[in-house]
Amino acid sequence: MTPSLLITGGGRGIGAATARLAAQAGYAVGLSYRHDAQAAAEVVRGIEAAGGRALAVRADVGVDSDVERLFDAVQAEFGPLRGLVNNAGTLERQARVDEMDAARLHRVLTTNVIGAFLCAGAAVRRLSTRHGGAGGVIVNVSSRAAVLGSGGEYVDYAASKGAVDTLTVGLAREVAQESIRVCGVRPGLIETDIHALGGEPGRVARLASGVPLGRGGTAEEVARAILWLLSDNASYVTGTLLDVSGGR
C-alpha cells in the first residue's frame, strides 16, 4: 500500500517542495492550505502530472474542527496516515517587541504554536499503537530563529518556533514507546516568499554574507532533510532538531 503523508501549509515554499519530493519518493500526499487555493491546486496538478497522488484541503490549523476534518479527508482519500510534516506557519511585518500588540501575537502564536500542537495531537491519535495505529513519523518545521532570537525583526515568530522545538523534544519522549518518531528541522535563511510577509522580500540577499556557506538555502534543500527524517534511514532518530542553515 502506498504510504500517505500529510503536509500542513503544503501549497507554497518549504511545504510545496516537500510535497513534490515526497510524491517522487512514493508517498500519497495530502496538503493543507489556508488562503491560496490556486497555489495548492498547482502543487497537486504537478504531482498528478508526474504520476503521483495528491489532495489539497483548505483548513486553518489553529481551529480544532478544521484539523480533524483535514486529517479525516486525507485518510479517507489515501488510507491510514504514516506521517505528518507540521509545516504551516506565519509571521508579521518586522517590528520590535515594544511595537507589538496582542492581536499580532495571537495571530502568530495561534498558527505557529497552537496549530502545531493540534496537528501533532491529531497525528498521534491516528499513528500511535496506543490508539490502534501502525506507527509513523512527525516532522515539525521550526526555524533557526528559535536559537538566534530575530531581534529587531520577529521575536514573536522566533519565540513561537522555540515552542515548536520544545514540542518536538517533549512529544518525542512521550510517544517513543508507541512506534512514533518525532523530529524537527530548523531552516535558516531560505529563499521563500515568507520574507515578503515581513515586508522585506530581499531579506535573504541582505543577510547572506553572514552565512558561513555564503548564500541562502532553497526550499528543496530543506525538503530533502525532511524526507530523510521521514525515511527508514533515520529509524534511530527521534527528539532531534536538525539545522538546515548553512552554518548560521
Rank of each mutant, 00 (worst) to 15 (best):
96 R>W: 05
8 T>Y: 00
117 F>D: 09
21 L>T: 13
37 A>R: 14
216 G>S: 12
181 R>C: 08
134 A>Q: 13
24 Q>Y: 00
170 G>N: 09
95 A>R: 14
101 D>E: 04
152 G>H: 09
24 Q>G: 07
12 R>W: 08
79 G>Y: 08
242 L>W: 13
120 A>E: 11
192 T>W: 08
105 L>I: 10
120 A>K: 04
88 A>D: 05
214 G>F: 12
160 S>C: 03
96 R>L: 08
57 V>R: 08
31 L>K: 08
233 N>W: 03
213 L>M: 09
192 T>C: 03
184 G>K: 01
70 L>M: 07
16 A>Q: 12
75 Q>A: 12
92 E>H: 15
202 G>H: 13
94 Q>D: 13
21 L>H: 06
179 S>Y: 00
182 V>C: 04
225 A>Q: 03
193 D>A: 11
131 H>M: 09
72 D>S: 15
95 A>I: 04
157 Y>V: 06
218 T>S: 13
220 E>F: 15
194 I>C: 09
137 V>F: 02
37 A>D: 05
173 R>P: 03
189 L>F: 14
194 I>Q: 06
137 V>D: 02
99 E>F: 13
50 A>Q: 15
148 L>K: 14
193 D>G: 09
124 V>Q: 06
103 A>G: 10
216 G>N: 12
110 T>R: 12
131 H>Q: 15
11 G>Q: 09
90 T>A: 02
93 R>E: 10
165 D>T: 13
75 Q>K: 12
89 G>F: 07
98 D>G: 11
182 V>F: 00
53 R>W: 08
142 S>L: 03
59 A>W: 04
180 I>Q: 07
217 G>Y: 15
120 A>F: 05
42 E>C: 00
178 E>A: 13
51 G>Y: 12
238 T>F: 00
11 G>M: 03
7 I>N: 10
82 R>K: 07
224 R>Q: 07
46 G>S: 04
228 W>R: 05
226 I>D: 10
113 V>E: 07
193 D>W: 09
240 T>Q: 14
128 S>Y: 06
13 G>L: 11
143 S>G: 14
200 E>A: 15
225 A>D: 04
161 K>V: 06
194 I>T: 02
83 G>Q: 10
214 G>T: 14
61 V>S: 06
62 G>I: 01
63 V>L: 04
70 L>G: 04
44 V>T: 03
101 D>Q: 05
28 A>Q: 07
214 G>R: 15
7 I>F: 06
46 G>M: 01
22 A>Y: 03
4 S>K: 13
61 V>C: 01
196 A>F: 01
93 R>C: 02
165 D>Q: 14
172 A>H: 02
170 G>V: 11
73 A>F: 12
145 A>I: 06
114 I>H: 01
24 Q>R: 13
138 I>T: 02
138 I>Q: 05
191 E>R: 12
171 L>T: 12
222 V>K: 04
17 A>Q: 12
74 V>Y: 01
62 G>D: 02
213 L>K: 01
90 T>W: 00
206 R>G: 11
57 V>P: 09
64 D>A: 07
109 L>G: 06
65 S>Q: 11
140 N>C: 05
157 Y>A: 04
35 H>C: 12
3 P>L: 10
